[in-house]
Computed example of a mutant assay.
Amino acid sequence: MLELIDRCAALIRAGRPFALAVIASASGSSPREVGSGMLVVPGATGAPPTRADAAADPDRDAGAGTSPGCGTGSDATPGTGAGGSCATAADPLAGLDDVELVGSLSGGCVESAVIGAALEALADGRSRRVVSGPEGDVFAPALTCGGLLDLLVVPVRPGDAFADALLAQAATPPGRRRIVVPAVDATGTACPAVVVEARPRPTTIIVGAEAFAQALAAQAALVGDRVVVCDPRPLFATRARLPQADEIIVRWPPRALAELAIGPDTAVCVLTHDERHDAETVALALRRGAGYVGALGSRRTHERRLRRLRALGVEDALLARLHSPIGLDLGAVTPAETAVSIMAEIVLARRGGGGAPLGRTSGPIHRRD
């Protein structure tokens, strides 16, 4: 949700109404966490959004009525449609080409039900609830993974109190944002508000600005990390080569790292192969408590690096935390593939996964804090 605040502010400043859908609660296996959000923005091309009439389309499934997933009211239950019709169950998104979606909630038909609820909320100015349907109800919006989501859909119009609150949060630094989504259903009944707290944005520090660093910077930015690239060579450490980096530092790496904030939410990736400073850089990252420290190189390079680190007085307990050679064994060859391998290992270290193929494991797929 918090990553959508800047887009919310831009829409409000442009005078465009939209609906915000946020996950109020989740149980069982579900891909997104409580507080995850999606924007439904009508009128992307300037024309009012429309819904296709199922009866006018002979290719639609016979008897496919309206989707029952737009439950409204404080007593909304899975699979009910107390708040009116959504798009058709056979093709929930038909005729809605003029609606823009930003963000995601599940990647499945839950989004389809939310779109219908969002358009209704914008039409009458009242919030909606959408509850994912139970397994076995083919017409209810249900997660394929069998989880249950309770979502709140709130209309946002420029000038209203909630729009003003979103604008205020957009002016707040990302790490300090806190959104309280008002929860009043279509009947006017107050429900518990959804509070979305800011979490510190993880940081990936990449030492070295060659091809592998370029690919890794793109991967780290993709997962939402703040990306810092450090390289003493101005020819390599350029904005043109590293457009995804939030910060580019042209300095001797150990000196640069000594001044950067490093902690449990920091990943430090040493990709230089430069024996003049890579051991010192790794030692500094380990001693300062980086949550992940990895170094590129062959197994032979790794053994030489360990000898240099021990010569620098790095204890075995810290050396055991070093990921070297860096990355998971994906059979990666290209810089882009290697970047996927490295980022996968960083996510594994942060989230506590096992790294095995999910098809060979048991238990919950989606872990919750």
Rank of each mutant, 00 (worst) to 15 (best):
V207M: 14
A267G: 02
S104A: 09
I115Q: 03
V223R: 05
P173Q: 01
V180T: 13
R321F: 03
V194K: 02
T266Y: 03
A168L: 05
A295F: 03
C8S: 03
I5K: 01
A186R: 07
I206H: 01
I179F: 14
S25F: 14
V223M: 07
R129L: 08
V223S: 10
G73M: 05
A186V: 05
D225Y: 04
A279E: 02
C230Q: 08
A283F: 07
T281C: 07
D369V: 04
I248A: 12
E247I: 10
S324H: 00
D150Y: 02
G133D: 00
S74I: 08
D185A: 08
D59Q: 07
A349G: 08
I262Q: 08
D246L: 11
A117C: 10
R241Q: 11
D369C: 04
L166M: 02
G313E: 06
L119I: 08
R299S: 07
G125A: 05
A311Y: 11
D137K: 01
R310G: 13
A349R: 05
R241G: 11
G147P: 00
I249G: 06
A256T: 14
G73Q: 09
A64L: 03
A344H: 13
R310Y: 13
A290G: 03
A10N: 12
L93W: 15
T50L: 15
G331V: 10
E275F: 10
G79W: 00
P325E: 00
T88W: 08
D91R: 15
G103D: 11
R60P: 01
L122H: 05
F162K: 00
S298C: 10
R367A: 01
G81H: 03
R126L: 01
V153E: 01
A62V: 06
P234H: 03
G83L: 02
A117F: 04
G95F: 10
F18D: 01
T272L: 06
G175M: 01
R13L: 06
A258M: 11
R276A: 09
A261D: 13
P200W: 05
T172H: 02
A193V: 07
V340S: 13
A290H: 02
G37Y: 15
